[in-house]
Simulated scan of single mutants.
Amino acid sequence: MRCRLKLDGRITTANFCKGDLSIIATRYVSSNSTAYLELFKPTLEEEESGILEYSQIFSKQVGEPVSKVITFSQSSSPSEGFFFASTNGGLSYCTFDESSFREVSHCENAHEGTIVALDYCSKDKLLFSGGYDGALKVWDVRCFGKKSEPLRFVPISSDRCCCIAHDGTSDLHKVFVGTQNGYVCLYDTRVNRDDAIEKFSFDDSISNMLAVASSTLIVSTFSQVYKVNFLLARNTLLYEDSNTCIVGISANPFECSEFLIANRTRRLIVVNFKNGLVKNNVVCKGESYWSKVGWHSSLPVYSAISYKSLEVGLFPPDSV
């Protein structure tokens, strides 16, 4: 089962709506400097032939290019809401349905400059955001928009934040932050000062992180993937490719010991984080290399973005 959507302009990010296989995507057309929020739904699915077709249900032009989109939970629908961040530092809470787009609330200056990281804790209804301004902010989703200030603010040594992962299994106040200069820091968001509990240093900028267990992360840089255990203060090299650049990793909720790597070799690679073994791969047949990758939470279905296309497919495929 594979479906590729070819679109005009550059797809910047996409997320499953989780209740079904619907997808919220964002797109930027540089020729006329126009940004869009879009909703796609599967219109045809034939299990025997492996055919999956999508159609665009709704498209909305937005004022600024979108830097990040996050849905509330893996079982949510677009009508239950989602957040999107813009390159000018704005953060919006929105809803989508089949006929309309509605911005419920908006914080114009959530960050100074581009917001590049969002993570959501469904248990406590908390949204974590990080930006190029070197700040980690915590927002209460239930009252977002009623007050413009975040619950908590943690400065990060004036370094650019690249990604965020929260420790949702044991301590909701613990948040991991990956930075542009190659640090992964563990913060307690109850303390509003730059005082990391623990810190690891890597050779490259941090491109993504996954919290796979309490205080255990999968961390990717441009060429390597590590398993980092903060409690034991150690890291293990899981995957390395000196000939390419790793552009995305995503946890496989269907198989908790696996994660998916997207890289510039036009392949998607599944790696076991217990032993580092490569299990399978899919070759990109689009116009360019993969740039982002994600999993559906309850199905072995991936989404991947290349330059002008969005692909959805079943993983592992029938043949590799």
Rank of each mutant, 00 (worst) to 15 (best):
I269T: 10
S303I: 10
G276W: 03
E287I: 07
E287A: 07
N275A: 09
S297D: 11
K279T: 09
Y307N: 14
N272F: 05
W290N: 00
K292S: 05
V301S: 04
S306D: 15
N275I: 07
N280L: 05
P300F: 00
K292N: 03
W295L: 05
G286D: 11
K308P: 01
V283M: 05
K279W: 04
K274V: 15
S309Q: 06
K285E: 14
K292W: 03
Y289K: 11
N275Y: 08
V282L: 05
L277C: 15
K274N: 14
V282H: 08
Y307P: 02
L299H: 07
S303V: 10
L277D: 14
S309Y: 02
S288N: 11
S303A: 11
N280T: 13
N272S: 12
G294H: 00
P300A: 03
G286H: 06
I305S: 01
S306I: 05
G294E: 04
A304N: 07
V283L: 08
H296K: 02
N280D: 15
S291N: 11
S297L: 07
G276T: 08
N272I: 04
Y307I: 13
E287M: 02
V301T: 09
K285N: 15
C284D: 09
K308W: 12
S298E: 12
K292F: 02
N280A: 13
W290I: 01
W290G: 01
K292A: 08
K274E: 15
K279R: 10
K285P: 15
S288Q: 11
Y302S: 08
L277G: 13
K274S: 12
V283D: 12
I305K: 00
I305Q: 04
S297N: 11
K292Y: 09
S298D: 14
V293H: 00
S288T: 09
Y302W: 10
K285Y: 15
Y307Q: 11
G294Y: 01
F273D: 07
V278F: 04
L277H: 14
H296P: 04
Y289Q: 13
A304R: 02
W290D: 00
K308Q: 14
G286T: 08
L277F: 13
S291A: 09
I269K: 04
N281A: 12
K285R: 15
Y307H: 12
I269R: 09
C284A: 11
K308C: 11
V282F: 07
K308V: 08
Y302T: 13
Y302P: 08
S298F: 12
G286K: 07
G276K: 04
F273C: 05
V283P: 03
W290V: 01
V283Y: 14
